[in-house]
Design a binder for these strands. Structure first.
Lengths: 175, 175
DNA sequence: CCATTTTATATTGATATCAAGCTTTATAGT
DNA sequence: ACTATAAAGCTTGATATCAATATAAAATGG
């Protein structure tokens, strides 16, 4: 089957997609930035994602998983998986919520706080260097644009065009 | 060891990182956008990454792996892995470069082109909807900022502060 | 109070991502 | 030619990511 002889997409279209696709641009930037921060944070024993996750757990009250996943804009099952190595290393403790025995409460351990404290100055210097390297003043604007980008998908219900995603309860504002 | 009694990071610092960390913002946006395009492209049988990869192979001359990995800003080993399912499905063919027997040349098959052609209008409508949903005119600017972001890491050698990454040859401009 | 539904999370399977280390082939230096 | 180095990819192992599905507990409606 599939004779598929000449369903050629013109090269110009390829160039158009390459130059305009927001998704591609964001994925590229995400990979590059992840490498930058992973490299910088390696001496502290953390990846960029682990740093963000652990930092988000540094709160007065230990949060449940749902809001944390929403804050990081990740699937809840991804959060479950991401927690495992951190639990194994004894940096995060996951305990049953006494007030809702379905739920878990996430908390940094003392050692976890120590690791995070060691990573913080690395984050600061890396981020400062990044700020310097970028077109002046654009950083704040970029952040706002990215925020809007993360927001569009969560807020806009959209008529129902291609396919729906049943999971994910509604509440995005996790923190 | 690790008495680690009171290495408390103030909550205000957590809020600062959450609100300012470019890496976090980009990762968030990347996850959200990936979900959006993955959902949209699912009827075509592609993920956003597979779409970008296959579209980048739609060229007059079949490219080797290195430049493609550089274009997508991903590790070469990631590209090797990403190609496997596409080869298995018969959408991409990987052949030895006759002029340099270390290298490979990547090419869409006829069926691969057909799949890509089916996915293209989905990309178009999804991207158009995304454009509409974003603050007017900001999209071009955002793209430029992201481009700069991907560029900083590749271009700037940086004195040698935290740790170096030996891999990745130099040439970023793959296409 | 009991059945239904909803909510919160876990498990499995597939793909994505990168670091380390390895093999093969080109290229350079002599 | 002959070694030494560099370049292009691959394999392995660990983590990240999400869809589909499963489980348990709370909330809701009789």
């Amino acid at each position: 089957m599939a004779m598929s002889n000449s369903i050629e997409i013109p090269f110009s279209t390829t160039l158009l997609v390459r130059d305009t696709c927001l998704c591609l641009h964001v994925q590229r930037a995400a990979r590059a930035l992840a490498r930058l921060f992973d490299d910088a944070l390696r001496p502290a024993g953390l990846t960029n994602g682990q740093f963000s996750l652990m930092m988000s757990l540094n709160r007065p009250e230990p949060p449940p998983m749902g809001p944390v996943a929403a804050l990081l804009a990740m699937d809840q099952t991804t959060l479950t998986a991401a927690l495992k190595p951190l639990q194994r290393k004894g940096w995060v403790s996951v305990m049953e919520n006494p007030r809702d025995r379905r739920g878990r409460l996430l908390m940094l351990t003392g050692e976890g706080k120590a690791v995070l404290a060691k990573a913080l100055p690395i984050w600061e210097s890396t981020h400062a260097a990044l700020d310097d390297g970028l077109p002046g003043g654009g950083v704040t604007r970029l952040r706002q644009d990215l925020q809007a980008l993360s927001g569009v998908m969560v807020e806009a219900p959209k008529p129902a065009e291609t396919s729906r995603r049943p999971r994910q309860s509604g509440r995005p504002t996790g923190a």
